[in-house]
Simulated scan of single mutants.
Amino acid sequence: MAQAQGSYYVPHGSYWPIVGSVGITSLVVGMGLYLEGSTWGPYLLALGAAVLVVMIVGWFGDVIREGVGGLYSDQVDRSFRWGMVWFIFSEVMFFGAFFGALFYARTLSVPWLSGADPETSRYIWDSVVLNWPTAGPGNTAMEFEPMGPWPLPTINTLILLTSGVTITIAHHALKANERLRLIGFMWATVALGTLFIGLQAYEYYEAYAHLNLRLDTGIYGSTFFMLTGFHGMHVLIGTIMLAVITLRCMRGHFRPEAHFGFEGVAWYWHFVDVVWLGLYIFVYIL
């Protein structure tokens, strides 16, 4: 087990990092083989995913036991908080790249190709008129309907905003040591996250089945599914995290004066909410 020497934390030797490295390598190589059509690809991909799940459960289990055992000092708590801050910052940059791709395609590329700069468009793509949303030059005959803000995206926006309220109420309940209110509002947040995922899955079904909107529907389809898909993945991960934290709340792992595990997940969930608001405005409305 880890030991706290004075105010400085000395972690114990752990085999989880190497297990995680093996899992990630297997996952990436398996994905590459799958894209190349190899019969071994799906098996290696599944093996890598399984190893990663084992690593996450085992490593987080060790951290939980160390935290509950009182091995973490104030210095460790500050380290955790800064680690979470930098992690969320990296996620901001991650989504910023996709928002940047959307901005470039919509605001710069489409006008250029459509003759906003005649001298440039004459050499790039002659006599093409494009308006957003578009499948791009060469795909002007591809008939599809863009995804509008009503009803599912608006409903999902209300769901995520409500979940931000419920987790905030749960946080205040934790600080006030009101366990029943804490657990009730945490399960409500988990339910809202699950409902969001279900409605987004139905939205994807509608896009493929009735709107002819797919990942290969040109630049609009690719940016739409990359942004909403990665956000949906983050909501799924956040919902799993919320469920784990709720179970920990039920077991009494958190105290009003010491509950960073709860706060870290709450920060992540609020970040997911903010990203969705950006998606709702720039992908569905504008």
Results as ranks from 00 to 15, higher is better:
Met1His: 12
Ala4Leu: 15
Ser7Met: 09
Tyr8Val: 15
Ile18Ala: 13
Val19Asn: 01
Ser21Asp: 04
Val22Gln: 06
Ile24Met: 12
Ile24Asn: 11
Thr25Tyr: 03
Ser26Thr: 11
Ser26His: 07
Met31Tyr: 11
Leu33Gln: 10
Thr39Cys: 08
Trp40Ile: 11
Ala50Met: 09
Val53Tyr: 06
Gly58Phe: 00
Gly61Arg: 02
Gly61Trp: 04
Ile64Met: 13
Arg65Glu: 15
Gly67Leu: 09
Gly67Tyr: 15
Gly69Leu: 10
Leu71Met: 12
Leu71Gly: 11
Tyr72Trp: 10
Ser73Asn: 15
Arg78Asp: 15
Arg78Ile: 11
Trp86Met: 13
Phe89Glu: 12
Phe89Asp: 11
Ser90Phe: 08
Ser90His: 00
Val92Glu: 06
Gly96Lys: 02
Phe98His: 06
Ala101Phe: 13
Leu102His: 08
Tyr104Ile: 13
Ala105Asn: 15
Arg106Ala: 02
Thr107Trp: 14
Leu108Asp: 11
Leu108Cys: 03
Ser109Ile: 15
Leu113Ser: 01
Ser114Tyr: 02
Ser114Pro: 04
Ser114Val: 05
Ser114Ile: 01
Gly115Trp: 08
Ala116Trp: 14
Ser121Arg: 07
Arg122Val: 06
Ile124Gln: 09
Val128Asn: 02
Val128Ser: 09
Val129Ser: 15
Leu130Cys: 03
Asn131Ile: 14
Gly136Pro: 13
Pro137Leu: 09
Pro137Phe: 04
Glu143Asp: 13
Phe144Ser: 04
Phe144Arg: 03
Pro146His: 12
Gly148Lys: 09
Leu152Ser: 09
Thr154Phe: 15
Thr154Asn: 12
Ile155Glu: 07
Leu158Arg: 06
Leu158Pro: 00
Leu160Ala: 04
Leu161Gly: 10
Thr162Pro: 03
Val165Lys: 00
Thr168Pro: 01
Leu174Lys: 08
Leu174Gly: 01
Ala176Val: 00
Arg179Lys: 15
Leu182Pro: 07
Ile183Arg: 14
Ile183Leu: 07
Trp187Lys: 01
Val190Gly: 03
Val190Lys: 07
Leu192Lys: 02
Leu192Met: 12
Leu195Glu: 01
Leu199Arg: 04
Ala201Thr: 12
Tyr202Pro: 12
Tyr205Gly: 03
Ala209Ser: 14
Asn212Ile: 05
Ile219Gln: 12
Tyr220Gly: 05
Tyr220Asp: 09
Thr223Ser: 06
Phe225Trp: 06
Thr228Pro: 03
Gly232Ile: 01
Val235Tyr: 03
Leu236Ile: 06
Thr246Lys: 02
Thr246Val: 01
Arg248Pro: 01
Arg248Lys: 11
His259Cys: 03
Phe260Gln: 06
Trp267Ser: 10
His270Pro: 12
Val272Ala: 05
Val275Thr: 11
Trp276Ile: 07
Gly278Tyr: 05
Leu279Asn: 01
Val283Ser: 06
